[in-house]
């Protein structure tokens, strides 16, 4: 008895690979690609390039001076550091919330499902106002974090909450429960099933949510501007710093900071993607 007799091998994978390299675009797909690239260039690539050009127009030393300016460097550290922390928290809490929403049944689940999106839907300045009235000087809870660094952290947390939840939730809902049962009957504990079967399937979604969450954190303005007080060297974030640079007619400096943020965000997306690939492969 040979296996070739049972089910013939399909060399589909290698055939597909060969086809991809040699294929030519048809007229319609060429047109589609052209439109997509033009749209993307007009909206994203050209403005980005313009920012980089402006930021580096003063030469390397001008760029370096703008970025290492004491106040600017403090703003960058605060923003990136806080966005990083918030992303770590979101990865854990977001996955947990998605788990509860998908795997558990409890009263009020539908309501929670809808409420999760509020930070998406709310204008950020409204979020800022909400945070100010709850955690500001007149806090009914007696918690006053106005003009302090926790305000930045809290504001980031508020606006980035939905990202990991919403990317993980659909993937979790589609997971094959039987694969988990198979792992259990092979002797895997609940924790091992989570780590070796569930987590690898969720990793791409978690990474995507984390990237969104980080990017949103770095760019946040409206929700923290009221509560944080924008104190130079203490609670001033880069978006506020960029705005004040422009108000002081220092466009080059603003663009230089923007360029740094651009590079950091890009690096984070690439690193998350690499991490995610490694996690999935390792299983």
């Amino acid at each position: 008895m040979s296996s070739a007799l049972l089910v013939p091998d399909r060399p589909a994978a290698s055939r597909r690979r060969a086809a991809r390299g040699g294929r030519r675009l048809t007229r319609v797909s060429g047109l589609g690609l052209g439109i997509a690239m033009m749209w993307f260039s007009l909206l994203v690539l050209i403005p980005l390039a313009a920012v980089v050009v402006t930021g580096t127009s003063g030469g390397w030393s001008g760029f370096w001076d703008a970025v290492t300016n004491e106040q600017t460097a403090a703003a960058i550290r605060l923003t990136v550091g806080t966005a990083f922390l918030v992303t770590v928290v979101n990865v854990i809490m977001g996955t947990l919330i998605a788990w509860v929403l998908v795997r558990d049944r409890f009263p009020g689940q539908r309501a929670l499902e809808v409420l999760i999106d509020i930070p998406f839907a709310l204008p950020t300045i409204v979020a800022g106002l909400v945070l100010l009235s709850l955690y500001g000087p007149n806090s009914p809870l007696g918690i006053n974090i106005a003009n302090a660094r926790p305000a930045v952290f809290l504001a980031f947390l508020f606006v980035t909450l939905p990202f990991v939840v919403r990317t993980v939730q659909p993937v979790l809902a589609e997971l094959d429960k039987e694969a988990e049962e198979a792992a259990m009957s092979l002797g895997a504990s609940k924790f091992t099933v989570f780590r070796r079967i569930i987590l690898p399937s969720l990793t791409p979604a978690i990474a995507a949510g984390a990237a969104l969450s980080f990017a949103r954190g770095v760019s946040e303005y409206g929700s923290l501007v009221l509560l944080s007080g924008n104190l130079p060297m203490r609670t001033e974030v880069t978006s506020v710093r960029i705005l004040s640079s422009i108000e002081n007619d220092n466009v080059d400096s603003a663009a230089a900071v923007a360029t740094v943020l651009l590079v950091i965000s890009f690096a984070v997306i690439v690193i998350l993607d690499l991490l995610q690939r490694r996690m999935v492969r390792r299983g």
Partner: peptide, 21 residues
């Protein structure tokens, strides 16, 4: 006994493959 301790092999209709492995 939980499934982990029963030492049974289980095969599912829809294979239940570990897709990432």
């Amino acid at each position: 006994l939980p499934p982990q301790k029963r030492n049974v092999g289980f095969v599912f209709q829809h294979y239940a493959a570990f897709k990432h492995l």
